[in-house]
Design a protein around this nucleic acid. Structure first.
Length: 532
RNA sequence: GCCCCCAUAGCUUAAUGGAUAAAGCAACUGCCUUCUAAGCAGUUGAUCCAGGUUCGAUUCCUGGUGGGGGUACCA
């Protein structure tokens, strides 16, 4: 593995330069195309200052030390890079071992304890929309990546099934049942009309408001589950807010805050003290003067509950419309459960690109599009790929007109096509057409080497995704790898009866490509078809 | 007002502080008798402005400009 190679280099440099501190963060990188060498190290330049030597001098010393059996060429290059080329034998052995044990990726795992990953958590008052789709795609892919490297991840969905909105939902359904319009601040979507038609008419004529609420909530949760499953996302736990109330978690939480002396009373309400507020934040109410709790309190209680279930790492994925909530929650949890590693991923909102005529005609609501409709129109694969293609921090422009086109404009097909092409080659390959070559005797052409080096980079990309808690690096990688493969495919024939050794080497090579493509797509929740 | 995110090619976006800034779409030119042309090869084209830190800045800091979001005893 490259990680092993990297660790070996770190060890050597640490022995040679014991006074240097930056070696832990040393990372090999892929140099730009015009550079000679497969991999590159920029560390000498950052180490120059405290080693009091010129970067090139350090690089020169490092280059001599690093060279070993797996490296054929290693040189120091101004202003202070160490560039090296790995032997064909090393490359080929690594390619052969790709498929062997997934466990070897476990060394990439950043977490030792159980991880709770909460995402989507949309209010159960209507269909899931586009922003939920983005959260679902990012969250589930991240969970898959973490699981791939051996983390224990629990996907969790928080259902706000308590509070005013739920009452209003029940009232809205009741009004529809009675053939009336929903109340002023009620929910007017078509889904309630449909739901009202399917109510068990006999029973519910005796229903109270609460019964309508519960019926609506359970129906909508079911709908969310179905829509998410169609998107390839399944949760381990649907956590109901009402459970917190039933089991007195709000009371317990208030007591804990009191014990820490972080609470005070003002104007008849209970406030979270300024000792625990975030930067630039104000004091916040926990219990209103009418005795009802705010969502701030129940959210704190919910996270204490997560911690009590044994999770050492709590990761939440929120839309940018909740970013103002971040300092508050971080401060509160930092004061109450400082031992827990709590992280929040904020994803920017999904913007609908100005609709083309066609989209406008197809959507009665105009701007609104639900996750369900999206999956129906562009498919699960394209939808998931598009949603994770961008960094969570950047705004996502969703051009429905473009996404509707099921054509080659979609990068997901470009990547999937690699898989289909490779499978096609294997279906045509005859067992007697290839002759085994021992790794020590393997020689790779420039095209083959370039492809192999990129395949081996797979683990480094996973590492980057984990560090940034974002799967978008993986999509970039897959598109780049696909580009290299298609180019390779065009110039290098794999099955060549005249040359059984070459056939063997190339088949093993594209088997490696297939592994990276199939695993990568799988981590994104995108299928890898064998035929297209 | 205050807080957060964003600004890269005509459009949508990539790029652990590193070398000649990378793709797709759009435009133009070639390539199917050969493992799938949903492909390949090529041409045109970009870091918002002004300072600062650094050997080195698209990346970090400060101040602008422009866009988005947030600022409840709402949920």
């Amino acid at each position: 593995m490259l990680i092993e190679l990297e660790n070996r280099i770190k060890k050597i440099l640490r022995e040679k330069f014991p006074e240097s501190q930056g070696i832990q963060s040393l990372s090999i990188s892929l140099p730009p195309p015009h550079i000679k060498g497969n991999y590159s190290i920029a560390w000498p330049m950052s180490a120059a200052k405290h080693l009091k030597k010129s970067p090139l001098e350090i690089a020169g010393e490092a280059a001599l030390l690093i060279k070993d059996d797996s490296i054929s060429d290693c040189e120091a290059v101004p202003p202070g890079f160490v560039n090296f080329t790995v032997k064909d034998e090393f490359c080929f052995r690594e390619i052969l071992s790709l498929n062997e044990k997934q466990q070897k990726y476990f060394c990439l795992s950043p977490f030792t304890g159980a991880v709770n990953l909460e995402f989507v958590s949309a209010n159960p008052t209507g269909p899931l929309h586009l922003a939920s789709g983005r959260a679902a795609a990012i969250g589930d892919s991240l969970a898959r990546i973490l699981e791939f490297v051996g983390c224990k991840v629990s996907r969790e969905y928080y259902v706000n099934d308590a509070g005013r909105q739920v009452e209003i939902l029940g009232l809205s359904l009741k009004a529809r049942f009675e053939g009336k319009e929903p109340p002023e601040n009620g929910y007017r979507g078509e889904y309630l009309l449909k739901m009202a038609k399917n109510l068990p008419r006999k029973d519910c004529s005796r229903w109270g408001n609460k019964d309508f609420s519960e019926f609506a909530i359970s129906k909508i949760i079911k709908m969310h589950k179905t829509d998410l499953a169609a998107f390839g996302v399944e949760f381990d736990n649907w956590f109901l807010e009402s459970e917190l109330h039933k089991k007195s978690w709000l009371k317990k939480t208030l007591e804990k805050i009191k014990r820490k002396k972080l609470i005070y009373e003002k104007d008849g309400a209970l406030w979270f003290g300024s000792g625990a507020k975030g930067r630039g934040d104000k004091d916040r109410v926990l219990v209103k003067s009418d005795g009802r709790n705010t969502y701030f309190l129940s959210d704190i209680a919910y996270h204490l509950n997560k911690s009590s279930r044994g999770f050492k790492h709590i990761i939440d994925i929120w839309g940018a419309d909740h970013h103002g909530y971040v300092p508050r929650m971080k401060a509160a949890l930092g004061a109450l459960i400082p031992e827990i590693d709590f992280r929040i991923i904020i994803h920017q909102l999904v913007l609908l690109k100005k609709e083309s005529e066609k989209v406008k005609m197809s959507k009665r609501e105009g701007r609104f599009i639900s996750l369900k409709e999206l999956v129906e129109e562009v498919g699960k694969d394209a939808g998931r790929f598009f949603f994770v293609m961008r960094s969570p921090n950047s705004h996502l422009n969703f051009d429905i007109g473009l996404a509707r086109k099921k054509s080659n404009e979609n990068p997901v097909y470009y990547v999937q096509y690699v898989h289909a092409r490779i499978c096609s080659i294997f279906s045509k390959a005859r067992l007697d057409g290839a002759k085994m070559v021992r790794p020590a005797e393997v020689e790779l052409s420039d095209e083959e080497k370039r492809l192999a080096v990129k395949v081996l980079w797979f683990e480094k990309i996973l590492q980057t995704c984990i560090e940034d808690l974002s799967p978008h690096h993986l999509t970039s990688y897959l598109v780049e790898l696909a580009g290299l493969f298609h180019s390779f495919y065009d110039t290098c024939r794999v099955l060549d009866p005249q040359n059984p050794e070459k056939t063997y080497i190339r088949m093993k090579l594209i088997e490696g490509v297939r592994f990276a493509i199939k695993s990568g797509l799988g981590l994104l929740g995108v299928s890898a078809p064998e035929k297209m």
